[in-house]
Simulated scan of single mutants.
Amino acid sequence: MTNATRHQLIRSLFDEYIALYAGRDDRLTAKFSDCFNGFTGGGDFLVKDRASWVDITRQDFAQVRQQLRIELLDISMQDLAEDIVTVTGFFHIHLPIKDHILSQETARLLLLFRQEQGEWKIVNSTISIPYHLVEDGEVYPLKNLRERNLELEAIIEERTRALAEANAKLKRLSNTDGLTGIANRRSFDSTLAQEWNRGQRTGSMLSVIMLDVDHFKHYNDHYGHQAGDECLKALGKTLTRAERRAGRLVARYGGEEFVLLLPGADDVEALETARRIQLAVWAMELPHAQSDTGIVTVSLGVASTVPSRQSCPEELLRQADQALYLAKRMGRNQIQTYAG
């Protein structure tokens, strides 16, 4: 027999073993010699007889019934004698379960074949697997692997939840005014665009109220900027309490200016809302020594429209701003509606 033919024989013996083992095929046990000995990498004892190795093999097959995938990395074959050959293989074992540990470790298998009465038998099998010792009844440390997978899943779930909470918090912060705790200009602009598109689809009214603290510069000059901040905080709370209807938004537009978005409200309802806000601000009775009224008041501008493709949200804001400007010019502490 030539060297090449002999090489093919040794390789075919190894390939047959791998195919039967990976396929969980009990016919593999018929390949064991009566003079068998071996060592299983997951255990800590030497197997000295065929019957024990058959039991271990069947235990292995029972523990993992589905087919394995053996990823061969390297192989070495030695022709020791006419009736004795040996094969050493390095490979990864891919189990049919979630497996981020075993499949990355390199296992080593040493097989010793001897020809007995014209048939090649396995007389020694030694597999070295760099795992910790398995538990009773295991060939692979599946219990530990499942526990580790559960730990990893729990960690991933916790980190995913924490990331979602962090993103939600970041979104809230990015849409919240840092001083008053109500919606900021960014949040208002985004919501206005959404409601404008909704109004275009449904043909419903959309109203905006813009309001400004009267003589706020004089308030700051007289009481100080810290008192001015407290005034704006109190005003933000009052506006929020005064307008709690679902879908409506109260926002700080900038400086001492606030804005309310009223989806579905026509000009009559928007005007009623503005009057309710005016009364709520009066009821605060915040002292303002530099004002004719002696308390903090606001000027309000109201604008309403049915959104259309012929106009834009900025036009509605411009109209509310014009109405607010008119309220200031007419003496402040009053409400004006956009007349067109």
Rank of each mutant, 00 (worst) to 15 (best):
R198Q: 00
E165W: 10
Y131C: 05
A280P: 08
Y253T: 09
Q310W: 13
F32W: 08
G41H: 01
R245T: 00
T160W: 12
V296T: 07
R329P: 15
P130C: 05
V259G: 06
L133G: 00
R172I: 13
W120R: 10
G203V: 03
H7R: 09
S308L: 14
S299G: 14
K171E: 11
D26G: 06
R50C: 15
L111M: 08
D25N: 09
Y223R: 01
Q67R: 08
Y140K: 02
L111I: 09
N149E: 15
Y253S: 02
S187T: 04
L163H: 02
F258Y: 13
E257I: 00
I127N: 06
D74H: 03
F36D: 12
A303S: 02
Q290W: 15
G137L: 13
I10Y: 06
F258R: 02
L133Y: 06
P287Y: 06
D136R: 09
S125H: 14
L286G: 07
S291V: 04
D136A: 13
R198H: 01
A81S: 06
V296K: 05
H218L: 13
T202F: 11
E157M: 12
L13R: 05
L232Q: 07
R27H: 14
E71K: 03
T202K: 00
Y338G: 12
Q8Y: 07
T176A: 07
G118L: 08
T88G: 04
I335N: 01
P307H: 09
E147A: 10
L9Q: 15
T238L: 07
I93S: 05
N184F: 14
A246M: 04
L260S: 04
D60H: 06
V47I: 10
V259T: 02
A283T: 12
C231P: 04
F90P: 00
Y325R: 08
L109W: 08
D229N: 02
